[in-house]
Simulated assay, not measured.
Amino acid sequence: MLHQYMEQLETLGLNLFFAAIFFFIGMAIRDVLKQGNVPKFGRNIVWLVLFLGCAGFIAKGIIQMTWETSGIG
């Protein structure tokens, strides 16, 4: 039974790994911004860029999943 779901488990594990990486990057950025006394506008720009990176990754996953289920990719 495990062999049937191996590809799905690998995909889930990879997605969880990327989520953990984004979390740790966010925590590191938060620490650097706090210690560097960065102005509020600069902090907002940094968080916007990080959010857009996460949103792009999520959008890619959704598009890939829909294409694979419809038989395109």
Rank of each mutant, 00 (worst) to 15 (best):
I21R: 05
T11C: 05
I45P: 07
G61V: 04
F22N: 04
Y5A: 13
M27T: 12
F51V: 02
E68H: 07
I45N: 03
V38I: 15
I25Y: 07
V38W: 03
S70Y: 13
A19N: 08
V32I: 14
G26W: 01
E68D: 12
G73Y: 12
L2D: 14
Q8Y: 07
M27Q: 15
T11Y: 02
V38A: 11
F17E: 01
S70W: 10
A55R: 00
F23V: 09
A55H: 00
Q4C: 06
V49H: 02
M65P: 00
L14D: 08
D31L: 10
E68S: 12
R43T: 07
F17L: 07
P39R: 00
T11P: 02
I21K: 02
M65Q: 09
V46Q: 06
I25T: 10
N37Y: 02
L9V: 12
L52H: 03
S70V: 10
Q64F: 02
I21S: 00
M27K: 15
G71I: 12
K40S: 05
L16H: 13
F24V: 06
F17N: 08
L16D: 06
W47N: 04
D31Y: 06
P39M: 00
L48C: 12
I63P: 01
F22I: 07
L12T: 13
N37P: 00
I29M: 10
